[in-house]
Structure formats: C-alpha cells, structure tokens
C-alpha cells in the first residue's frame, strides 16, 4: 500500500472530489497560485484552473460567508482557513449563518459546505495562531466537527465531509501534515461519526482526537514496553457526531478511562466524554475518569515551554501510572 503524507492524503481527497462533482470548488487564501500556505492544495489550481480552485483575499468573514451563500444554492465549497484561529473573524458567518439557516428556515435550506484547515498549537506562533476551537464548534447544533489524526483518516473523512449535505468543519494539524501513513489507491470514504480503535488494549482506554491520538499511541508503547500496561487508544475522529458506543465498549472492557486532548480543559471535548462515561459506565469504572488537556492559558510562544503546554507522551505515561 502506498505510504503518503497527511498533507498528500487531504490533497488526494480534494482532487478526487473535484473530479467526482463539478459543484465542488476549493476556495481560500493562497490555495491556488501559491499552491497553499501549507501546500495542501499544491498542484490543484494548475490541474483544475481558476473556476474550481479560487484564491480569495484575506477576508475571512467575506469569503466564508460567500461560500455559505453559494452552498445554499448548491455549490459545494471547500473553504480553506489558513489557520482555524482565523475562524474568529468569520464567526458570525460560521455560527450564526451556516449552523442555523436550515433550522430557521424550517428545513427549507441546507449548507453543504466544508471549512477546513489546521487547528493546533505547538508551532511557536503565539496565541493568535494556535487555537483549537473544536469544542466551540461541537457546542453548536447544526455543525459537524472532524479531527483526523492519520493520513488514512484524513483522506477518507475529507471525502465524507465534502459529500455531506450539512456544514462540516474539518480541523487538521500542521504538525501532522508531514507525517506519513498507508493510504490505499482505491477509493474509500470513512463515515463521519465512527470512532476508530487505533490500538487494542485491556488495562485503560486512552480517548483522544487529532494529534493527541498520536501522543497516546506513543505513550501506549512506552507503557507496554517499560511498565507492562496494556492501553487501548480510541480515536474519536469526529467530535460531532460522536461515536459514543465505541467509547463505552472500550471503557467497559478496560474499566479505566483517560481523555487526552490539545483543547483547553474548561468545557473541552474531554469534559463531554467524561460526562458520557460516568453516565453510561459508572458501574464499570475502577477509578475516576482522568483528563489531560492543554495547560489552561493562551498558547505560550517560548518553544520549550509550549512543548510542555500541550499533552506529551511522558505526561500521559505518568498520568496512566497514577491511575492504574
């Protein structure tokens, strides 16, 4: 099976969907002639031309809103945010318009739009460029949130997002763009709302999304090799819709759960998962549900400190050792 990068996997998904549906349009800052600020869309403008791959001005409220309007009539825009942190200048469009027009029109309208881009810290770019808004978005009925951790998932979920008839906000990760993984040449689509057990285990469930999944997998290896602890790693893949059954099944098997995320702790994704587990697995638990989130402050610039602000494998190892 070919091994490609996370970045290439997304690109392949975009390319294949451009070929499949003439209504799919890629739009965003520097996505066309510049080949993408993070090279996700590299080569697509050259292949598909001005009509299908469109450079926009730095004007998120304007172009995101324009994409939402176009989607109401049947264009299927895939909008790139250079950083998800820039979503905040388009917040009214993304939250007030895309999420509610279907509802407020009594179901007469839907917005088949994808908004995608990196949503992560860890790259020393300071607080304004390091936001992780998956919890905000997942808090909004009408929206879907997808956070792929691997090249395989990134491609399959992106294709599902583009084919979905509701607004799907896909949060990628610049740290993962260069990571490689096996991705088949054959067509496949990963349904949104299905979690994936990335590693089977029996002692504790590590429940994560996005890059935190990779962190958990590394921690699980250390725990297995050095401490004889067998971790199961559950990758949520999408936050909303959420695959609750896979989480519950895992916790019922391991009887312990640790939620790991790069989100901030307050009302973070882990809080929702912890609430679910206490509700559905109370009698199965051998101890309280643990949580690891980003250290609760704006993203710090200082490179060695930022490493410590986000969850890292050794931190997960220590937390697991304290829990089991």
């Amino acid at each position: 099976m070919p091994v490609i990068t996370y970045r290439e996997a997304i690109r392949h998904a975009l390319d294949e969907e451009l070929a499949r549906d003439e209504n799919v349009v890629i739009m965003g800052e520097e996505v066309a002639q510049y080949d993408g600020a993070y090279k996700v869309t590299q080569g697509l403008w050259k292949k598909w031309g001005d009509k299908r791959v469109v450079d926009t001005p730095i004007s998120e409220a304007g172009f995101i809103g324009m994409g939402i309007g176009a989607s109401m009539l049947g264009v299927r825009p895939v909008m790139e945010l250079m950083f998800w942190s820039f979503a905040y200048v388009a917040w009214d469009q993304m939250i007030n318009n895309a999420a509610t027009i279907r509802y407020m029109s009594g179901g007469k309208i839907n917005c088949p739009i994808v908004i995608r881009g990196p949503a992560n810290g860890g790259t020393n770019v300071g607080a304004t460029h390091s936001h992780t808004p998956e919890n905000f978005i997942a808090n909004t009925p009408g929206l879907k949130v997808v956070c792929p951790a691997t090249p395989y998932d990134a491609k399959g979920l992106m294709k599902a997002a583009i084919r979905d008839n509701d607004p799907v906000y896909v949060m990628e990760n610049t740290v993962l763009y260069g990571e490689t993984g096996e991705v088949p040449d054959e067509e496949y689509v990963i349904p949104i709302g299905v979690a994936d057990v990335k590693r089977e285990g029996s002692d504790i469930s590590l429940i994560a999304h996005g890059r935190a999944v990779i962190t958990c997998l590394k921690a699980a290896e250390i725990l297995a090799e050095e401490h004889g602890i067998d971790c199961e790693v559950v990758d949520l893949r999408s936050i909303r819709p959420l695959d609750e059954e896979t989480i519950i099944e895992s916790v019922r098997k391991t009887n312990r759960a640790l939620c790991v995320e790069e989100n901030k702790p307050f009302c973070g994704v882990g809080a929702q998962i912890a609430s679910l587990i206490q509700d559905r697995c109370f009698d199965d638990l051998d101890g309280p549900v643990g949580r690891i989130s980003a250290v609760d402050a704006p993203a710090i610039y200082s490179p060695p400190l930022e490493k410590l602000q986000l969850p890292y494998p050794e931190q997960v190892v220590q937390k697991v050792l304290a829990m089991v």
């Binding site: 409220a61 304007g62 809103g65 939402i68 309007g69 109401m72 049947g74 469009q93 407020m104 309208i109």
Partner: peptide, 27 residues
C-alpha cells in the same frame, strides 16, 4: 425564507447577510 421563490431570508444580524448575498450571486 422561501427558496422556492428565490427568497433566502430574513437575517437577524446587521450586515451578516451581505456575504451570503455575494454567495448567491456566486452560484
């Protein structure tokens, strides 16, 4: 709203509909 009559609302936030209008024209 009445999309069957090419009528797309009806929007509560001042100016919030202006990018949507551009988008309808984009289509």
């Amino acid at each position: 709203f009445a999309p069957d009559k090419n009528y797309w609302g009806g929007h509560g936030i001042v100016g919030g509909q202006s990018p949507l209008g551009a988008g309808l024209a984009y289509y």
